[in-house]
Design a protein around this nucleic acid. Structure first.
Lengths: 200, 200
DNA sequence: CGTCTATTTGAATGTACTCAAAAGCGGTGG
DNA sequence: CCACCGCTTTTGAGTACATTCAAATAGACG
């Protein structure tokens, strides 16, 4: 879908302007590279085995990226809502089969940019190198923190950190999905919540 | 320490030239921003609570970045040898107190660039935005994979993945440090290794 | 050589898991 | 609009993997 509606880009442009300043011509050019896609709840944006040909900006809704292990259990790599980027970066960078599924936990809309367009964008407006460096840097720091928390905290502590850090997710993401993100079973999370309620 | 010896920069320049092409003048300028530091085994490069004022390129040796939890147990966020970057990126970016210690597992040498110099470098030679974007992107992808492996694999699988992916570490890093990286106790790793040896 | 640290081994413990079933909730179609 | 169906959440009982604590052995460093 090609885009014309200006409102569509408010969020992503606000996002970008927090890190780099763009001329109107640069904005127009950037927007011309984007496509949009709407997803119904449960619909796939990407399936493992596909090549991830885009980076996705979540304009509306809620998505998850996850892998399925040998026993068929899902493990959530990333949750994202409006304003977040999502994708399978390794697949995107190397052009190899994706390891992750991405699907919608709510009816959603993403803006996407494919690899050629992105390289083109880097060449034409080098400031975007800076923008994506910063975005990725922040994602990297958050992921490192998650590694350390997985190593050093028990399930209850991780859950408390999670709802404290991402209150929006606690509202919008089903418990079994939060459990998957935390690396525990839905049964365990249910028990943890009961205990926390008892403590109060 | 200010630098003059050309050999000192071979590794880092080779590293950089894999991603961006530099003019001699740009190389000279970049090098002028670097400082070097030698570390004896067990010596700190950074302590939690300090502000991490540099990004560090490991020119020689082996370092670890780790946090210490409430019970005094260490958890290794990152291991690195020659050719790897290391630091506490959150502290570096925000100027806040570091959460991680970094110290040397072997006598080591790092090249370092401070924040002002790096921003200066980005301004003067924007190609470095690209270079660090790529470096961070790769680190991000690797860290995401680690999250998923921590969520989906048991201790034995994670250990096998580890020695397969980082054979150099198996040689150079003590077992209790590998255990810490994998998120298990040294005792558990010892038992896992015994079982693996028995299977053969 | 002696000391300090790392590794191995054993025994008891615990946190989270699996399997199973019931209760709750939400969406869909009659 | 209500009833039903499927999925999510809760609860229980038994289990397993890794932990803790303790001690012995091995190895590294001065």
């Amino acid at each position: 879908m090609k885009l014309t509606n200006k409102d569509t880009f408010e969020l992503i442009l606000a996002n970008i302007s927090r890190h780099i300043k763009l001329e109107q011509s640069e904005i127009d050019y950037f927007i011309s590279l984007l496509k949009s896609r709407k997803l119904k709840k449960k619909q796939y944006l990407l399936q493992a085995g596909d090549i991830c040909r885009n980076e996705y900006f979540i304009n509306k809704g809620c998505l998850r990226a996850y892998s399925t292990d040998d026993e068929g259990v899902d493990h959530i790599l990333q949750l994202g809502i409006e304003g977040w980027w999502i994708g399978d970066m390794y697949s995107f960078l190397t052009g190899t089969a994706a390891n992750y599924h991405i699907d919608a936990l709510e009816d959603s809309e993403v803006l996407m940019i494919d690899k050629n367009s992105l390289e083109e964008l880097y060449k034409t407006v080098p400031k975007f190198e800076r923008f994506f460096r910063i975005i990725i840097q922040n994602a990297f720091v958050a992921t490192q923190r998650r590694v350390i928390e997985n190593l050093s905290e028990d399930a209850e502590e991780r859950y408390l950190q999670f709802i404290n850090r991402y209150p929006a997710f606690e509202q919008r993401v089903p418990q079994n999905q939060i459990a998957s993100y935390l690396g525990i079973t839905p049964e365990s999370l249910s028990r943890i919540r009961r205990q926390l309620a008892a403590k109060k």
